[in-house]
Measured scan of single mutants.
Amino acid sequence: MAEQVALSRTQVCGILREELFQGDAFHQSDTHIFIIMGASGDLAKKKIYPTIWWLFRDGLLPENTFIVGYARSRLTVADIRKQSEPFFKATPEEKLKLEDFFARNSYVAGQYDDAASYQRLNSHMNALHLGSQANRLFYLALPPTVYEAVTKNIHESCMSQIGWNRIIVEKPFGRDLQSSDRLSNHISSLFREDQIYRIDHYLGKEMVQNLMVLRFANRIFGPIWNRDNIACVILTFKEPFGTEGRGGYFDEFGIIRDVMQNHLLQMLCLVAMEKPASTNSDDVRDEKVKVLKCISEVQANNVVLGQYVGNPDGEGEATKGYLDDPTVPRGSTTATFAAVVLYVENERWDGVPFILRCGKALNERKAEVRLQFHDVAGDIFHQQCKRNELVIRVQPNEAVYTKMMTKKPGMFFNPEESELDLTYGNRYKNVKLPDAYERLILDVFCGSQMHFVRSDELREAWRIFTPLLHQIELEKPKPIPYIYGSRGPTEADELMKRVGFQYEGTYKWVNP
């Protein structure tokens, strides 16, 4: 592979701008107003304001973009700056750019259920340069409990009458099928589907988006991507930290609602779906819905739930269990780990287990898709061969690698495990991989909904998990304890083995 010439960040961002501006969906010269509902909250200060700053800094926003914060707290732009700027990672050389960014910011205080507050917000936006005809993007960085009041008031008082209007809704989209349907029906009564952007930030990850290209742009994968060759698929999300004093919020939802029903299920769809007619948003989402419709409700015998306990040999936070978090209700049975087996009941995947695993306070930070292939028929190497695996590593250190057998150097035919490896950090030294939120917010500006969740996708996802969630809430089974920093409950490994996964433990990928 030829040595790549190092590029400056300015040059890299210039390439990104060229890609972005050559499309006809990006209205570079139009006025846009980006409204952050819930501007005083954690999500706004840690993710949304920093993301908008990065896009502005790199010249990736339309030229005439204004940012308006809205929340109940009586704040000023200076207050917003004070709480969000520490997350910007701005350099001293960017000081003038930073001043320009905050000059485009404003803030309006108001209630979430008060019509007069929204009329005041609308008047404020109209007073901005060309504000009355601007395109408006409303980001709901809010708890779902206020979605209905907020969307109703936005629709009645704050819509642009000339430009387009788009609304970005953060997960969780309800707690179960019934609450999700209620919320979807409410929002759909106010906005068209092409105006609604239900954001799952995992769909903005580079390697998640790469799944489609790997599958449908490489001839070698087509013939082997089926039940005849693939023994099982494992989708993993692991965090090495616990709730760390923020367990009160987590306890309301648990690990299945927080990660599995959305992030992991979306990745499953991209692995299992048929080739779409095109890369058009609805063509892709149509195929994802077909996959979900082929999955039956989760069966309790295919589920393992766990909850982390303190590690007596650990240090600091590792010595504390979930129930030691003062914000967690006493005696909570909320799971911090889950392993679930699903089956896609169609011709391509009949009988292939899709194993979804996620948890907190585990032994490493990792998100990946792992396809394990069947054993080689007619073994001539005296059971020395391990199964081939194709691994798409989402985070950290984005990579695609194939675990395969090669001859060990020497005189004899002794096979050993090795890999074919594409590590993004080595291959793409001159490429700026956008943060997931950067990519998705740019998608909203461009009107691309491919990486957002459609209402029928959402409904099918909740259909699969709601009976299990209701059973857990009714019966309150005690989750299996696992030690902070471990791989999780051993019962999860036993479940995976029972459905056909072979864990060798003899080879570990190392970032080159």
Results as ranks from 00 to 15, higher is better:
Q178N: 15
L190F: 11
R227K: 13
T31G: 14
Y112D: 02
V108N: 11
D194N: 15
S117P: 10
L20A: 15
I35A: 09
N226W: 05
I234T: 15
Y202V: 02
E99Q: 07
T91L: 09
Q22R: 12
F66M: 10
D58M: 06
S157W: 06
G222E: 13
I255N: 03
Q178F: 13
M212A: 04
R17T: 15
E63F: 11
L142I: 14
L190C: 12
Y197D: 02
Y112E: 01
I15Y: 11
V150Y: 04
Q161K: 13
A71S: 09
P50V: 07
T145W: 07
N153V: 05
I33Y: 14
R136C: 07
L203M: 04
I196R: 00
L177E: 12
I224L: 11
Y49F: 08
D30C: 10
G69I: 00
F221V: 11
I67A: 04
L55C: 10
Y118A: 14
D194K: 13
Y139K: 04
I220H: 01
K97Y: 06
A109Q: 06
F34E: 05
P86L: 08
F216M: 02
R166H: 10
K95S: 11
T10R: 15
R227W: 04
L235Y: 05
S189D: 10
T151R: 03
H201R: 00
M159H: 10
P143I: 11
A25Y: 15
V146L: 15
Q22Y: 08
F253D: 03
F87G: 07
L55Y: 04
Y107I: 06
F221S: 08
K89R: 13
Y202T: 01
K95R: 08
F87A: 06
E170S: 03
H186N: 12
F173T: 04
H129Q: 08
P62A: 10
N229T: 07
R166Y: 03
V68S: 01
K205A: 05
L140Q: 07
P86V: 13
Y249T: 03
Q11S: 12
I67T: 09
N229E: 03
I199A: 03
L96T: 11
M207Y: 02
F253Q: 03
K46C: 04
F34A: 09
A217R: 04
I196T: 11
L60T: 04
R81Q: 15
G14C: 09
I154C: 07
D200R: 02
I224T: 10
